[in-house]
Design a protein around this nucleic acid. Structure first.
Lengths: 325, 325
DNA sequence: TTTTGTCTTGAAACCCGTTTCAAATCATAC
DNA sequence: GTATGATTTGAAACGGGTTTCAAGACAAAA
């Protein structure tokens, strides 16, 4: 690997001049510039990013901390972030934590020590606020609501409104007995969605019918079984997210219950899977691309944006698991 | 951010001694050790990985270059790699290329300049061999077969055998008119799978029935439409991968063709989606976790393993889109 | 011709953890 | 008490790109 000093020697200039040619940080005599360019060409010199990063205190790196990359929602979010990052010459460092708090903390420290320029994190961990003091780089929390503070900022979608929309849609579609599968209430998005559902119930004088569930496929199947026993006349199901909605469909399908004729289903998130399955899933869509892009931009653009919270609108996407009217 | 020199000053020792205490690279007087530990505690010192990496010429980083993280197969592969990497204290740097060769090359250069310890890449690009000379770190190619050479190694599964198994299974399940949806033949896995199918046809004196398709959902739907027109008596479909199998199912489902009663389907890969959909997809499973783990280990363990190619076995997973006998 | 100003350039310091090397310390052996 | 060996320790160099600072070069103004 050729170093800048090798190039300098070959071009008969100083390393400083080579640096200036590469970065265009100062005027360099045309003649010397040519020599440097030629020397770079000949040696195949590629500047060492580590050395650069050590001095600049920026590695052009964004840390991505999430429970698991294999959760389709996070995958899509990661994809959106990657596209935005790449556009600006930034790279992503992946850290899966399985929601283990210690791993989260360790990941943050590691990323700071790598001179990462910022961290995007999805966590339900209330301790997050303390992380802010732990480091001097921006931390963006996505998909969870919090009160922003310091260099901790929040980007997410309006889950409460989404919860209302889901409920209102099923009512519009003629459901008489709607059951809401609540997600874990420690996760703010799950809580907000449920709150939306609940408020619509109150406003319309509908009795709440709920069952608890994790954001997870296996759980979803088990809970659907229980749900069917508990609410025998159910004709509409609000799943806490698309993954659970898919498992709800599977159970209904296995039992020969027709969707949407006998039971209608609505999910949350609009992950790619929602369009893939047959029937296609009606769902409340989160603008995942916009959320990811905004989160990345908050780090990359380093603007003095004082706004601490960015909320995007949820959107109803009607497909085949609810009845058109 | 406290530096090692701050700690040294506070503990009244030299930076070298602090380094030795941290890394256990040499004996240090107990008394001084205590002082150092105390100073680290007090300052909240975390060693700067960038400086360490600059000297060590290793950043404990694995570069992951793939067309898109959003392709479920790659997502799962990335997950498997991440788990193995994390176990050994390595991080993953994500580079999506959209299969653009220039981006691939740029990503490799970037990763080398970041002092990455190795690169795992999924590419159909025949030029790869030249990359070997481009850098002195191991490059592991997964899911594509090649002839390994130098520090370029190959980890993949036996797609040819998988292709045979798919065909043989549909025959066993009683299909009389089997159509193979061929993937792009420039991609070695697609070619190998097709070759397996083809050879079984020849051995059994069956006439080949094929149609061409990319590894992609949209294409899959279009191609299935054509397939149904071209082969009106089709009763078994081998899809080039699970994603295409899902789209095949969707088209059949929309047309009211029952699966597996009228047409049986078999896919490839056994991505998570295969178990999620209803009916569950029969498929040829790749041991994604093992492939990912092996690829990561080849980089992390730095063994002088001379083996250039690692081939894993494919496995038939019978589910609901083929008929049990 | 001298002065003032502008531009180009390279030496050296910088970022910070690691390692080498030689000096210093201590203990054991003669 | 001196010689020999073993151990601990810190100063300094190292990795490699960037930036500062002051010197040198050159042009324009006086």
């Amino acid at each position: 690997m050729a170093s800048i000093r090798d190039v300098a020697r070959l071009a008969q200039v100083s390393p400083a001049t080579v640096s200036r040619v590469m970065n265009g940080t100062a005027n360099v005599d045309e003649e010397k510039k040519k020599r440097v360019l030629k020397a770079i060409e000949e040696t195949g010199f590629v500047p060492n990013e580590v050395a650069r990063s050590l001095f600049k205190r920026s590695a052009k790196l964004i840390g991505l901390i999430m429970p698991s990359i294999e959760n389709p929602f996070f995958t899509q979010l990661a994809g959106a972030i990657e596209r935005t990052a790449d556009k600006h010459g930034y790279r992503l460092v992946l850290c899966n934590t399985g929601s283990v708090i210690e791993k989260e903390k360790a990941a943050i420290q590691m990323l700071v020590s790598m001179n990462a320029d910022g961290i995007i994190l999805t966590s339900s961990n209330d301790e997050i606020r303390n992380y802010t003091s732990l480091c001097n780089i921006p931390i963006i929390v996505t998909d969870r609501s919090f009160n922003g503070c310091g260099n901790l900022k929040i980007v997410h979608c309006d889950h409460y409104q989404g919860g209302r929309m889901a409920m209102e849609h099923l009512i519009r579609c003629g459901c008489k007995s709607i059951v809401c599968i609540k997600g874990q209430q420690e996760i703010s998005s799950a809580k907000d969605r449920y709150d939306g559902y609940k408020d619509v119930c109150q406003e319309k004088g509908i009795k709440e019918q709920t069952v608890d569930c994790a954001y997870d496929f296996e759980q979803g199947m088990k809970v659907t079984d229980e749900l069917l026993k508990k609410y025998k006349d159910v004709d509409g199901i609000i799943a806490c997210n698309d993954m659970v909605a898919v498992s709800v469909y599977k159970v209904l399908h296995n039992k020969g219950i027709r969707v949407p004729e006998q039971v209608q289903i609505i999910g949350f998130d609009d992950i790619a899977l929602a369009k893939l399955m047959s029937p296609e899933l009606t769902t409340i869509s989160q603008p995942i691309d916009e959320i990811g892009a905004k989160a990345a931009e908050l780090i990359i653009l380093k603007g003095e944006e004082t706004q601490q919270e960015y909320i995007f609108e949820a959107k109803l996407v009607e497909r085949e698991t609810t009845r058109h009217n």
